[in-house]
Design a protein around this nucleic acid. Structure first.
Lengths: 227, 227
DNA sequence: CTGTTTTTCACATCGCCGTGAGAACAGCGA
DNA sequence: TCGCTGTTCTCACGGCGATGTGAAAAACAG
């Protein structure tokens, strides 16, 4: 499992650092931080973010407005707002603005963690889920890989399935047989040679030097994805 | 917009009726109720449910166990749990069991409403979103329509897109031009005649009598879906 | 009755996919 | 080192389904 990147936006340095520290204990997470909405929005634009934790009460822009801005700019990852008091209207307006969830301070870290995991899990099978693979941004629902330069590679159905499954496996190599069964189903009468051909075609599309794979690598009787 | 069906499971009749009454004020919702987990699970099996509201403290089965059971049986719609006291472990264990959200009693109805809407919105573009169209259950991600008898109809890419968009429009007819732009994009060089052919093929697949459409009906210079 | 909308169906093309056949390569025992 | 074997890669071929279009029939509106 590749680490998911979480952006934390809060002007309270102490809380922010505490969150970073706690989350870093789990190697399923990587963190980035910002102390203002403006900085947070800038980071969200540049980097690939899997989930956003944001305080409602920020010095520069109101949290709800920031959410609206982000969504208008095409930010699709789940957003969890951290709110000071338990104000109902905060919750309602925030959710309507485009936030996915609210957690009231003070909160137990374990509660936040559970919600973070739940939202990541959900989002990863939504239509606008986007994964970072090498220099590409991979959108399964659109069957497209987009270069960091912006040039797009169109993928076929099978190619998308293969990449989806390899991504879920993270850095670990996946056996041909397993991959075969996951993509084609258990009684498909298709041999691993078919899979190999698909891998070949994928490499022609996405590797800089197809004869020298750097992203989609052969290893231990199977394939794996290199981030 | 077709009404979404919400199943409410709670042994507190007063609260249950109150929720039903409130939700019925909006014609975007239809409600079903059950006073025990067992009854709720039974209903969830038979009917098409878009969202489940469930009390944690039920007389027969614990709410969390009920959630686990439902998920194990393949229930995919979002589940919002209603919890009496604000117990952290309740929340965490509930989310891990497969619930999507928690709301603590007492709650303002407007808050619950906002969360219900947020979850419906999210779920409708997830991979296991399922829509009820006539006697069919339509799963866009799988590109399949399943009869109430269980027989499956495989759909093509374009057919799926067309149905997805028509469903979102609800009972209102959609102009050929709009549909064309939504499915093919704005500069595709394809005429409405192509769309008409796709509609023809769809009807061959899903209508009982293709020459006498009952589901995918022509109206006002466009098409609409009849529930 | 006439022009327009809508349906019906056949045809041609294109892309996806599975397979065959051979090349390249690595490992291993003699 | 040589030869054998199994794995992996490369590439071309053929089939099939999805899609767009043409042509004509049918339905409909005025």
């Amino acid at each position: 499992m590749t680490a998911r990147t979480i952006l934390i936006v809060d002007d309270d340095t102490e809380l922010r650092e505490a969150l970073v520290e706690q989350l870093s204990l789990y190697d399923e997470f990587a963190t980035i931080q910002a102390d203002s909405a403006a900085n947070g929005i800038a980071l969200a634009k540049d980097d690939h973010i899997d989930l956003l934790l944001m305080d409602v009460g920020l010095p520069d822009i109101d949290g709800r407005e920031a959410v609206k801005l982000l969504r208008k700019n095409g930010f699709k990852a789940p957003i969890i707002m951290l709110t000071g008091h338990d104000g109902d209207s905060d919750t309602i307006l925030g959710l309507e603005a485009g936030a996915n969830d609210y957690v009231t301070k003070p909160f137990k870290f374990a509660v936040l963690l559970a919600r973070v995991r739940a939202h990541l899990r959900q989002h990863e099978q939504s239509e606008d889920a986007t994964f970072a693979i090498g220099r590409y941004s991979f959108r399964p629902a659109a069957k497209i890989m987009q270069d960091d330069k912006g040039s797009k590679v169109r993928l076929t159905e099978k190619e998308t399935s293969i990449l989806k499954f390899l991504y879920r496996a993270g850095e670990k190599p996946v056996t041909r047989d397993i991959l075969l069964h996951e993509v084609w189903g258990y009684n498909s009468g298709v041999t691993t040679h078919t899979l190999e051909t698909h891998i070949y075609r994928l490499r022609q599309k996405i590797e800089r030097d197809p004869s020298n794979a750097e992203l989609l690598v052969t290893e231990a009787g199977g394939y794996k994805l290199v981030p």
